[in-house]
């Protein structure tokens, strides 16, 4: 083998065992098992409709907001089942942040967007909020661009800035995991590059799972890559390996653009 094996030193943050997901009668995901390591970036790739976004949303149970869903199997975070382990989905979502496909800032000021999360949990004094907001905006590499216009509406920002604001907003409640659902699909290449750099910095103390349809992006930002096809996991491995020596023919075909 060409690539030396890197012994993984980071613990497992999220662990999925034999998980299946259905909307009513329609089965979307089936027989999924995989592990996601802390402080690593795990990319999920696959053709559209393969269930990768659905899978991502299972980690913070945001599906349940709009429709009745059925999840079977185990999905563990730090060894505790997030569906049956007595975890409340509201608590879970605080711990598992999410960045969506389209930037979705609230129609409020930049400051209020970031302060929204902390306020939910009763943080109301100005100095703590100021501190949290600045910290989150710095982490999202947005502070220098917006520090003089925190009171301006977030909807007036560029798409890339809006998406970084959404990242800052998610970081402000101190999540352990950050889910990113094709975060760059609505952005131009320069804004995309900024987000990708940011992902590299954020993984220092976050577990990041990113769904992307862009294979170059997966190769650039992720440590692990999982390839989904028709609601099943075809292969998961170190990103380098997936992109150089995949074990399954189908993975290779997909990566080299023969289908999908």
């Amino acid at each position: 083998m060409l690539i030396p094996t890197v012994p993984e030193t980071k613990p497992i943050k999220l662990s999925v065992r034999n998980m299946a997901f259905s909307y009513g009668e329609k089965k979307v995901l089936d027989g999924l098992s995989l592990d996601i390591h802390a402080e690593r970036v795990t990319a999920i790739i696959g053709p559209s409709g393969c269930g990768k976004s659905t899978f991502l949303k299972c980690f913070n149970r945001i599906h349940e907001v709009s429709s009745a869903v059925n999840v079977s199997g185990d999905m563990l975070m730090d060894g505790v089942d997030i569906y049956r382990g007595g975890i409340d989905e509201v608590d879970l979502r605080r711990r598992v942040g999410m960045v969506f496909q389209k930037p979705n800032p609230f129609p409020k000021s930049i400051y209020e967007n970031v302060a929204f999360g902390p306020r939910l949990f009763g943080v109301s004094d100005r100095t703590s909020l100021d501190g949290i907001v600045e910290d989150a905006l710095r982490k999202a590499a947005l502070w220098d661009e917006v520090k003089d216009r925190l009171k301006e509406s977030a909807t007036g920002m560029s798409g890339g800035q809006q998406q970084r604001l959404c990242i800052a907003r998610a970081l402000a409640v101190n999540p352990e995991v950050l889910l990113m659902d094709e975060p760059c699909s609505a952005l131009d290449p320069i804004a995309t590059a900024k987000i990708e750099d940011l992902i590299g910095e954020l993984k220092e103390n976050l577990t990041i799972v990113i769904v992307t349809h862009n294979m170059q992006q997966a190769a650039r930002v992720s440590d692990y890559t999982a390839f989904f096809w028709l609601g099943k996991l075809v292969e998961m491995d170190l990103t380098e390996r997936i992109f150089t020596t995949p074990r399954v023919q189908m993975t290779e075909d997909y990566i080299t653009g023969r289908f999908g």
Partner: peptide, 14 residues
């Protein structure tokens, strides 16, 4: 918009 509600739920809002 659904996205706004999702953003709020995603931050742990009840």
């Amino acid at each position: 918009p659904r996205e706004l509600k999702e953003a709020s739920y995603g931050l742990g809002a009840t």
